[in-house]
Design a protein around this nucleic acid. Structure first.
Lengths: 190, 190
DNA sequence: GTGATTTCTTGATATTTGTCAAGAGCGGGG
DNA sequence: CCCCGCTCTTGACAAATATCAAGAAATCAC
C-alpha cells in the first residue's frame, strides 16, 4: 500500500485493497517549489490535489489585498470545488507556502471513480456534506464571536499551524489584521 | 403537474414527468403557524423540507443570544444538512416567521430517490457543491468586507427580504447588531 | 557569519462597531 | 379606536478593530 493509498484510506474510511489501488492509480504525483502556483484565480480548474507534504495557501484578491481563505495541510485535498465540479473559473489562487508534494487527479479521471468504486457517490456525498458543515461553523463563528474568541478557538484546535505558517496568513483567514492578531496573541500567551 | 413538482423541476432542472411525479409523492405537505418550530437545536433531524410559501428563520444560540444563520424563502429547501445526511443532532433551530406551507421528505424516503431518479446522485452532488460555494462566498465576505459593504451587497441581491423579514434578523445573519444595521441603512437610503 | 528581506510586534491614533437607554413608529387584538 | 407589544431608530458613549509608522526579531541567500 502506497502512502497515498494509506491517506486515502484514512480519508474515506474502509475501502477494499483493489479499490484503493484503482483510486491511487488515477493520481499523478508532482513536486511544488515554494511559491509555485497550483491554481490561479480566474483560470480553469481541472484538477484536485491531495497534499502529501507541505503547506498550501488558498487566497483571492479583494480590493487589491490578498485575502487568505484557508491554509491546506497534508492529508487534505485542495481545489476550487466549484471550479472542479462545475467547470467554472477558479475563484481561488493556491500557492505553495513551502516545498510540497501533491497527488493530482484530473477531472476526467475523477469522473471514472464512480465506476471503479461502487460506493464512491456515497463517499463523495459525505465529503461534500462535511465540507459544507465546516463552512457553516466558520460563518457562525463570524456571526457570534469576537476576533479574540476566533483566535482562541483556532489556536485550541489547530496549534500545529502556529509553528509552520506565517502568522499574517492565519490572521487573514480568521478575519483580522496581522496587528490585531499579534495583540490578541500577546494577551493570550502567558 | 403539481406546484411542488414545478418547483422541483425549477430546482433540479430537466426531469422526466414520471420522475417528477415519483419525487413529488415522497413529500408530505404540512402547514406551519407563525412561531412553529420545524427543527430544534440538539434534537434529531430526520427530514428536509421544501418551502412552498412563508418564511423560516434558521438560528442557534450562542452565549444566550439567538444568532440567525439564514432566512429561508419559498422555492428553497431547509434542514440541518449535517443532521439530515449524517444523522447527527441538529445544530440549528428552524422557526416559522410567518404562516408557512412546506413539503417534507423523511430521511428514509430521501434514500429511495436514487432508485427512483437514476441521476439523483448527480443532482444531489451539484446541489451540495452549490451550497458549499455559497458558504465560501459568505465567509469571504466576512474576511474582506465591512458591515456596510456586506449590507450593501445583501441589499443589492436580496431586496425582496427587506419588506418581509424583521430587519433585526437580517442584521444578525449579516453579522452586525440591529443598531448598526439601522445606521448603515440610513446612510445608504437617499 | 553577515547583510538583506521578510515577518512580527508595538505605539499612537482613527474608524468602525457594539452597548445601553430612550423614544418613535407600527400593527394586531379587544 | 386605543392600548399593548414589538420593531426600528437615535443618541451618547464604550469597546473592538483598523491604519499607519517605526522598530525588533526572525529567516534567507550568499
Amino acid at each position: 500500500m502506497t502512502e497515498l493509498e494509506q491517506q486515502i484510506k484514512t480519508y474515506f474510511g474502509v475501502l477494499r485493497p483493489e479499490e484503493l489501488q484503482n483510486i491511487g492509480a488515477l493520481f499523478k504525483p508532482s513536486m511544488l517549489k515554494k511559491g509555485d502556483f497550483l491554481l490561479q484565480e480566474g483560470r480553469r480548474c481541472d484538477k484536485m490535489s491531495f497534499i502529501q507534504s507541505g503547506l498550501l495557501r488558498i487566497y483571492a484578491l479583494a480590493d487589491g489585498k490578498e485575502i487568505t481563505q484557508w491554509i491546506s495541510t497534508p492529508g487534505y485535498f485542495v481545489t476550487d470545488l466549484a471550479g472542479f465540479m462545475l467547470e467554472s473559473p477558479s475563484r481561488w489562487t493556491v500557492q505553495a507556502l513551502t516545498d510540497a508534494e501533491v497527488f493530482t487527479i484530473s477531472r476526467d479521471n475523477y469522473k471514472t471513480l464512480t465506476e471503479l468504486v461502487p460506493r464512491w457517490n456515497e463517499l463523495e456525498k459525505l465529503f461534500l456534506v462535511k465540507c459544507f458543515t465546516i463552512m457553516e461553523d466558520r460563518i457562525f463563528s463570524h456571526l457570534s464571536k469576537t476576533a479574540e474568541e476566533r483566535y482562541q478557538f483556532f489556536f485550541d484546535h489547530h496549534r500545529e499551524f502556529f509553528n509552520q505558517v506565517p502568522l499574517q496568513y492565519i490572521a487573514s483567514m480568521l478575519g483580522m489584521t496581522a496587528e490585531t492578531f499579534s495583540r490578541v496573541r500577546k494577551k493570550q500567551l502567558p
